[in-house]
Design a protein around this nucleic acid. Structure first.
Lengths: 159, 159
DNA sequence: CCCCGTTCATTGCAACTGCAGCGAAGAATG
DNA sequence: CATTCTTCGCTGCAGTTGCAATGAACGGGG
């Protein structure tokens, strides 16, 4: 029964290491070429999905604290990559949108991202499907144990 | 060919989110019960594998900057969880080891970790093997693209 | 119409992070 | 040996992080 604990086999650890490695690998693209931080890249990536998004929406979907989103957005605005304006429907909301410059950057980044994604799939080989299925199972809200209050995106935070 | 870029399908992103979620989920154990940070937990976990380890060894294997290891070790020492002493064979090395108190904590943590691991495997269900195979493939040093100078543990950093 | 509880985004603050640089100790070279 | 190069752990520092608190704006109930 009680196998000795083996760190190298512990899934949260293994996945965290993998995530760090992939993240770092791809960060070369947006960091070297555009000087973006990971947080900034994520905000941009999210904006490429829906043209106009509020800080709250990004916070809710992405694994980022809302202050992190806020500050990333400010830096992007300062760099002329996104615009911030107050929503007319709800004046508490800040609506983010890519500028033309931002869109051009994002187009290039999207291409690079797809190339990288293709390479990863290639690395996975035929086992890709199994891996993706596992990701889904893991991500699913089974959470038998460790039930939590939880908020948007699991109260974000972390990383 | 050129599918539009979809953030939710981008593997580095998905894996990062998953890693964050699992990490946070399990961190409740060592954080709530023992007040450990993630870095401290990792150092302890590593120490549970081999009784005596140097800062450098942890830095090399784990995805942690050496200063991070150093400071985590200092905090653990202050808390009476590990001891630091200078190696006799090489007086540059600092040898870390769990104290009795630390061992007791680690035993409890190991149990919790195994429970959590079991739950994760359960979540994965029959697809577990495929997932683990994918992890291995992904981690493997295929790295066709993005070759790097690299150092210990991919020059650590990140996360 | 006016409260009052809630939802947003931002900001202050303390803690943490990574990086560069340091001194001490070992290894290599002649 | 003396000299130089490398390895190891630590620390200063600037930048970042998460958390809590703030203030503005909604929205519902009386």
């Amino acid at each position: 029964m009680s196998e000795p604990f083996v760190l190298d086999g512990f899934l949260p650890y293994r996945i965290a290491v993998l995530a760090g490695r992939l993240s770092r690998e791809f960060s070369r693209v947006y960091q070297d070429r555009f000087g973006l931080s990971r947080a900034e890249w994520r905000v941009m990536a999210h904006l490429s999905q829906e043209a106009e998004v509020s800080v709250r929406e990004i916070h809710a979907r992405v694994d980022m604290d809302k202050s992190k989103v806020s500050r990333a957005a400010s830096r992007l605005e300062e760099a002329g990559i996104v615009t911030k304006r107050i929503s007319e429907r709800d004046r508490r909301l800040v609506v983010l949108a890519l500028t033309e410059k931002g869109s051009a950057m994002m187009a290039e980044l999207a291409r690079a991202a797809q190339d990288y994604q293709a390479e990863l799939i290639a690395r996975l080989g035929p086992g890709a499907e199994g891996f993706l299925a596992g990701m889904a199972a893991m991500t699913s809200p089974t959470e038998a144990a460790t039930r939590r209050h939880a908020g948007p995106a699991e109260a974000a935070a972390g990383q």
